[in-house]
């Protein structure tokens, strides 16, 4: 009995995916050359792999480059993201985004607070820190600007039908005109697609995406804080 054992499916996949070491790869090449059935199986796997890759090649993010203005805002935002992410990844002269609890220690005059969760402790802490920061700045005679950008479940705080913070936000905005609320339109679109009517609180502005707004502000020198 000199018959070689059948090549396992794992081995065939690893061959097609280039995951074998040199010795196993050479042995497989010899087997494939001598075994027609094995050759057919390997060809099928290669075909499947190519079909899968091709099937997804034409998919693009819906909001990355609107057809009406491919080189407009979305393009600028996309490039800005590149600069900012690249900046973070380069580890030079940049710090991690600060925790919201550090807010009062921030010396910068323009601050973006990103709220991506509707959890009470997250929102309460963010609003308290923002209020303290604005009060301290006013007392010190500093001109500051603060933006609260909400997406994901954090959007709930800016929606008229879901916000448990509507009165608090309204009061803050009345006391501090230098405070702005920004809602993520991508999150709003998702809610609408799922059949939810989205009504925002009065005075809430809308950005194409939270990411675009954050990147735009970071490029303008704002400090980014994730709540």
């Amino acid at each position: 009995m000199n018959q070689k054992p059948e090549v396992s499916q794992e081995m065939r996949n690893a061959f097609v995916d280039g995951q074998l070491d040199a010795a196993d790869w050479t042995a497989m090449v010899e087997r494939v050359g001598a075994d027609e059935a094995l050759r057919r199986q390997v060809c099928e796997l290669r075909t499947l792999k190519d079909m899968t890759r091709s099937a997804y090649a034409g998919l693009h993010p819906r909001r990355a480059a609107p057809p009406a203005n491919r080189w407009g805002w979305a393009r600028v935002a996309g490039m800005a993201l590149v600069f900012v992410l690249a900046g973070w990844l380069a580890h030079d002269a940049l710090e991690r985004p600060r925790a919201v609890a550090d807010l009062r220690g921030v010396a910068a005059d323009r601050i973006l607070v990103h709220v991506a969760s509707s959890r009470g402790e997250v929102v309460d802490s963010a609003l308290q820190e923002v209020e303290d920061y604005l009060r301290d700045a006013r007392a010190a005679g500093r001109k500051v600007e603060v933006e609260i950008v909400a997406n994901n479940t954090g959007m709930d705080i800016l929606r008229a039908d879901t916000s448990a913070y509507a009165k608090r936000l309204e009061r803050l905005r009345a006391v501090y005109p230098n405070l702005t609320y920004i809602a993520c339109n991508q999150t709003a679109d998702r809610l609408r697609e799922n059949g939810t009517a989205v009504r925002l609180l009065p005075g809430v502005h809308v950005a194409p995406t939270a990411l675009d707004e954050i990147v735009k502000r970071m490029q303008q020198g704002w400090v980014y804080i994730r709540a």
Binding site: P61, R62, R63, L81, V84, L85, W88, L89, H91, L94, R96, P97, H114, A116, N151, N152, Q186, T187, D189, R190, E193, T209, A210, L211, I214, Y224, R226
Partner: peptide, 23 residues
């Protein structure tokens, strides 16, 4: 889901911003 995919990518990139020091 195309819309959810947009959201997930946005969230992933935002988290990447948040955690860049880990890379």
């Amino acid at each position: 889901d195309a819309g959810l995919a947009d959201d997930l990518v946005q969230e992933a990139l935002l988290r990447a911003l948040d955690r860049a020091a880990q890379l």
